[in-house]
Nucleic acid binder design. Structure first.
Lengths: 187, 187
DNA sequence: TGGAAACTAATTTTGTAAATTCAGTTTCCT
DNA sequence: AGGAAACTGAATTTACAAAATTAGTTTCCA
């Protein structure tokens, strides 16, 4: 069964959220109640697992994006709103803040991640630009700035202590952020 | 002349922006063309200099804030806009990103800084709340979220590479950010 | 009074050898 | 086929002493 491969990915994410990058393959094996031997039947190395975790996560986001892009009967604004929320929602499953640690030990994987992080914005930017042409969004609001603000706000939201201070739930915060930003560029 | 004391503060900031926290007192003395002896006539320790730098910067911000608060003939929205921009403008003089390094070596000073960073928001929040009562700003936009977004966006803007990517000048970015955020909570 | 330079005690950095941990493999067993 | 456990070489962490740096003081001199 090849779904064991997926189970390994999912469980590695689980352990990663607890122990961060310093998780060991023994940790993962123990968590799953299988032996390392089995893990190494499906993966050639620890690095390969992390590499595929990145794909696993971003493929999921991509799929969700396409779902939204193909959903019928949505106004541009509704579609943009959903698209903007889709991405951070996917990151509730993995400890986003800890992912930055990849930079030192696995620079290749980190680079892949930032690349996908970047390209993930393309459909949204496209939609925003379409919205501008149709007069929904202001022409004089810079979309790069918009992107910086969205990125920064979400990253801040992921920081351990930020959410605790607000007493608001994560998804609620997310909606507020998207609200403010979209209204902020509305014509 | 007591303005030598101020010159020492200003020049220490200059050296700090170049060399970061690892600046030496010899660096500062050399930069000013005076001897360490003179520096230690005005300050008891290096730590005391950093301590007073924090006060120096934040007193400046406070003064600018009061200026804006006492300025006549401004609408609430204009006043808020100016107030929101005042703070980050003051930080063009010092390398804000490097200030975080204080945390490890001078936790007391770092704490003072975060405290003043926090209390610096009070007049703005007050103004925003007044704006809500007068129906200028939406009641359903959470001001904590607003603050998180402003903080995060500015911090991101200070990051070394962010500005380079945009090709827009710092002050221009700042205005865009304030624009989007304020319009985003406008009723 | 204040600069230049030397001085000291404390701190920080550097080098490195020993100890530990861990990725990946192998053996043995069911 | 796959679990339990032992194994190995490489990498990482720890410990600590030697070396270098630097805060703050002192001396001498203009």
């Amino acid at each position: 069964m090849d779904d064991l491969k997926n189970r390994i990915l999912v469980n590695t994410i689980k352990v990663f959220n607890k122990k961060g990058l310093k998780l060991t393959m023994d940790d993962v094996a123990e968590q799953m109640g299988i032996s390392k031997k089995t893990i190494y039947k499906y993966f050639n190395s620890k690095e390969e697992i992390f590499d595929q975790i990145v794909d696993y996560i971003f493929d999921g986001i991509k799929a969700r994006e396409n779902e939204i892009l193909n959903e019928e009967g949505l106004s541009i604004d509704e579609r943009t709103r959903k698209l903007l929320a889709a991405f951070p929602e996917s990151f509730t499953a993995i400890d986003f803040a800890k992912l930055g640690d990849l930079k030192d030990k696995y620079p290749k994987i980190y680079k892949k991640m930032t690349r996908r992080l970047e390209s993930g914005w393309e459909p949204t930017i496209e939609l925003l630009e379409q919205g501008r042409k149709e007069g929904i969004y202001r022409e004089d609001a810079d979309l790069t700035i918009f992107k910086i603000m969205m990125d920064a706000s979400i990253a801040k939201l992921f920081e351990a202590d930020t959410l605790k201070k607000t007493k608001i739930k994560y998804v609620e915060c997310l909606n507020q952020i998207v609200d403010i930003l979209l209204l902020g560029i509305t014509a």
